[in-house]
Design a protein around this nucleic acid. Sequence first.
DNA 1: TTCCGACAGTGGGGTCGCAAT
DNA 2: ATTGCGACCCCACTATCGGAA
Length: 507
Amino acid sequence: MLIDLARTSAAVAASPARLAKIGHLAELLSRVEPDEAEIAIAYLSGELPQRQIGVGWRTLQDIPEPRQVATATLCQIDGLLSRIKARTGPGSQAARKELVGELFRSVTRQEQSFLLRLLGGELRQGALHGVMVEAVARAADVPAAEVRRALTLRGWLPAVGAAALTGGVAALRDFHLEVGRPVAPMLAQSAPNVPAAMEKLGGLAALEWKIDGIRVQAHRSGTEIRVFTRTLDDITAQVPELVEAVLALPVDDIVLDGEVIALRPDGRPEPFQVTASRVSSKTDTARLRETTPLSVFFFDALRVGGADLLDLPDSERHEALVSTVPAELIAPRLVTADPEEGMTFFAQVLRRGHEGVVAKSPTTPYAAGRRGAGWVKVKPRHTLDLVVLAAEWGHGRREGKLSNLHLGARDPRSGDFVMLGKTFKGLTDELLAWQTERFLAMADGPSDEWVVRVRPEMVVEVAFDGVQRSPRYPGGMALRFARVLRYRPDKRAEDADTVDSVRELLL
DNA sequence: TTCCGACAGTGGGGTCGCAAT
DNA sequence: ATTGCGACCCCACTATCGGAA
């Protein structure tokens, strides 16, 4: 029953202790029917078996009154969500809205609350994937490592969890790396500079170009090629250059990890926006590849010639990569234990216009789907002193606190401030409390339900990765990945950085 | 007893496709 | 032709729990 999940979710949200959350989830899983296990695991880890159904925050406004008695089963809900997803074409928005209304009319208030959070993509119960893996392990009475291993190879926890509940360890061992079925890619931690990254790895490190493009996982079985993104979406049709490159390799059973990027004729990278536009365009690919060709840089091999390499150390996987893929398709790499040499390599990468480096431990296996300690990325960081123009009320654990800051640079000609973007990052609870009080006292001008405008007096030091062209902001530029470093009460607005100094970074 | 790895949460800018206006 | 929504590309950072040291 849906009500069982709603109650479990509420209990999970109410217990701060992770072990207690795991206990609640495992208890539910231990009494779920086999044919509904997959749905239950998906919902309670914040996912839908349909993945996306075309319903977002807007469609979830104006929810009808609930009913009094809970009767909905998981299969009924799942069926309705599939019908919603299937609605496409003219009239589909109204049809979806109607079906969403039907869905919410058929459940109680507590179930509505659960479904709202689930469909809105914000479960807010302090448990998603990571906690659910532990809960599955406990409910199925199998080691969590076995669940994680199967998940690595299958990429979809509801399927793995359902198998564990019905078939135990034996069923989990049946999962293998399958060519054509994507594996959750390994992610990197970060460090402020190359020596720090190398120290994290224990000295010896393989440094590779960090390319500012789109992560790709390329599968080939015979002459069949499939290309997947970080979230395991299939983008094969959008990247014909990559398909041809993989088809030209001498091995026909292979899984590679890499990055695609649009390069200019001189070999320097286009801005990320250009690559993103090219890769997400589904029409006119033939013409686009003439004007904006894609290049690929592979940096890992998960399978070569029928052999799974996930558990091998990085150095051996890279050897396999080098022996199968031509050098011009591989991210340049330097193995060194010398921080000085590492810094030189970093400087060279930046001079060529690329984003930074990823330092890798030569000994670590491929930690699929995890932010493994074996990979550490390093990027340069810019900072500016900007002026707070407004602040937005936060959500969730930031409810009642002014959170998201509107940032402006000084325009020396007009004396006005030009907005360059927003940030909510880098703020501690203490800082959130302080700025809420402070900005309410500084409030000025028209404020609405979400935004409190303030007198442009408070200077804040902001770190960011770069400046990009913006179709949205008045100065035509915006900061990428802005985050607060600290407030500068010692500075006045007149001391803040100007739009001219920001524009210089746009080059 | 302290340290630190892993997770969840809180949102950022930009782009596309599609349906509605 | 334009606008709004949903989905997805890139992402940083803090708080917290609980096992490791």
